[in-house]
Design a protein around this nucleic acid. Structure first.
Lengths: 347, 347
DNA sequence: TCAAGATCGTGAATCGATTCACGACGTTTC
DNA sequence: GAAACGTCGTGAATCGATTCACGATCTTGA
């Protein structure tokens, strides 16, 4: 009684429906069902309707594992970020996601939390998932796993990293130019004793280079001191502020360029707590234009960084809709003047 | 010449290696290779070593599609959040990720950006990916897709949502208690004209209920006004601050409980800009203890919410390592007194 | 020394969607 | 009216890892 006369086991009634179920219901073969979804033009309109109706009634969702096993890659793209807690990366992810959705694709966000080990683990996982492309916003060097993956046919784009010594596809805002903008702005409003606060990081180093160039090109006498740190976080910014305050007797800088906004917010807080008036005594420029920059007690002057656009472009490149060259000149950084610096001299 | 005498096509040399390749190199059958990874004890130590060595030399990564097709589910868990830009969800994701990694699992973060449509699309995608479980931190109602998925065998946990009218597995901090803590703190320091600012949202409504209870239980006379809003963001907070300032003549509240920290930061900014002294004129309590709470110019008193722990527990529940009951009483909210409120009367 | 049992490796079937190669049917054209 | 061609549906092979059921080899005890 339990076993019918058919050799095939009856399906559990709540198991996910398969092409076979849809085919049976629509009275066609499994091949036809598949063609209905993958090459609709190959199926006559009449049958197509019938198949789609059957699929709908059954709540057919398809099994991407089977699909992938056959065609070799998934509809998903992988996004590897070093720290999802940084609003910049959250914005990057959102931009990539929106663009992917527009093309019927999905983004898997993996957060390595700055750990090279997790980074490698996730890259391997991406490979085992056969993602059809990878966006990587890694901390340091290009991981070997990524290079291997690329060789094995999974395209990748480095996001937010300049083409450095490597020759892999990479798109990025012009961080050097942004750094130049920031320092020039301070110089233009009369600041002459500048400090750059930032740690080793591909982006930040370029921002520093830009700031340095601005000071060197400046016709008058101006100085740029560099304070190196370990990480670009608000906590570190506060610590640096305390250090600066300690040498108040010998003279504070009158302008600071921070490696990013988190750092700048920490600095701002620390300095104001210490009685420094911003921007009267000292001007401050951050980098990234995160949401909180505008809500700091003294709204932060900063360099806007088109993170969402970068994410979107990276997706388009991976999907072959755009080439790396096409993006040249886009993603220009932009100075956003708020209250931590004076308005630029207007004449 | 092109075609050899073997019927099988030679593999492209840079194609990903398969179990067959590893088996050939180690001189064993494909079954043995598989058992080496899935049931190591079934293989003698000697062979195990040989297989692992071969796999390592070939850079074998496995094909999760094939694996999944056979076993029916993936090693990945899906995390659906409504807004990855909110630090609370970023923290939740990080907590879940760490716990998952400890068990050899991975988390796919999907960001619906508050759109019910994207939410549904991602749930379907999760199904097609056969994730072995889903963590959902949705905005409003429990989506039908999720319920269907659950019925079809994919476990899910609602994170950060109280068990409401529904009866689905859910874990959450005790938002009612947190709201009570916040309001009680204000009452304890002598505030009597309280305002709760918050919009419709499962969490926030509970926080409001707690605040209301605190005021009702309070032996002296105290009032609680409720300002309803559309979204808990900093921008909205600023707008509310402007509204409050406009009625300064008729009297401002002396204590505000905000639905979350983003909102509180916006309020804080708006009020201070308007000349209100915090905490002298008015005390403010936020909710969530996001990183930026501590860096606001007047560091924000808030209720700490164990988001990372919630994420970790949700993962353990999905993996069957813990039951929903086990978490009862954990995730207690905690009052973090900073500068936007006075210290509680200590005697 | 030989049978019974434990240990450990293997061939083959299987999961579900895709796609090739074929064939049935209908239409066009001379 | 028949040959040639197009259109559109189908059977069957395929992707790679897993796992069942079986069998080979080795161990143990009388």
């Amino acid at each position: 009684m339990a076993a019918g006369s058919v050799s095939k086991q009856p399906k559990a009634e709540d198991a996910a429906p398969t092409v076979a179920d849809v085919a049976a219901r629509a009275g066609v073969s499994r091949a036809t069902v598949s063609y209905t979804f993958t090459q609709p033009s190959r199926v006559s309109p009449d049958l197509r309707r019938r198949v789609l109706a059957a699929a709908d009634e059954l709540g057919y969702v398809g099994n991407d594992a089977a699909r992938r096993l056959r065609v070799g890659h998934s509809l998903a793209l992988g996004l590897l970020v070093s720290n999802i807690g940084n609003p910049v990366y959250a914005e990057l992810a959102a931009g990539a996601e929106a663009e992917a959705a527009a093309h019927g694709r999905y983004i898997f966000v993996a957060n390595s939390d700055e750990s090279p080990e997790r980074e490698r683990a996730y890259l391997n996982f991406f490979e085992s998932q056969q993602v059809s492309g990878i966006l990587a916003a890694p901390v340091g060097d290009v991981p070997d796993e990524l290079i291997g993956l690329g060789r094995r046919g999974t395209p990748f784009v480095l996001v937010g990293m300049a083409r450095g010594p490597h020759s892999y596809p990479a798109i990025s805002g012009d961080n050097e130019r942004g750094g130049h903008l920031a320092a020039s702005h301070l110089l233009a409003q009369g600041r002459r004793g500048l400090v750059f606060v930032g740690g080793p990081h591909p982006h930040v180093d370029l921002r520093l280079a830009g700031a340095r160039r601005a000071v060197e090109e400046f016709p008058e006498r101006a100085s740029l001191e560099i304070i190196r740190i370990q990480a670009q976080t608000a906590k570190v910014g506060e610590a640096v502020a305390r250090t600066l305050l300690r040498r108040r007797a010998t003279g504070l800088p009158d302008g600071i360029v921070a490696g990013n906004d988190l750092l700048a917010l920490g600095l701002l807080h620390g300095l104001i707590m210490g009685g420094v008036r911003v921007p009267e005594d000292l001007s401050l420029v951050g980098y990234d234009d995160i949401e909180f920059a505008d809500f700091a007690i003294v709204p932060l002057t900063t360099i806007r960084h088109p993170s969402a656009a970068l994410g979107a472009s990276a997706v388009r490149i991976l999907l072959g809709l755009e080439s790396e060259r096409d993006t040249r000149g886009r993603f220009e950084p932009e100075l956003v003047v708020r209250a931590t610096s004076l308005a630029p001299a207007s004449g």
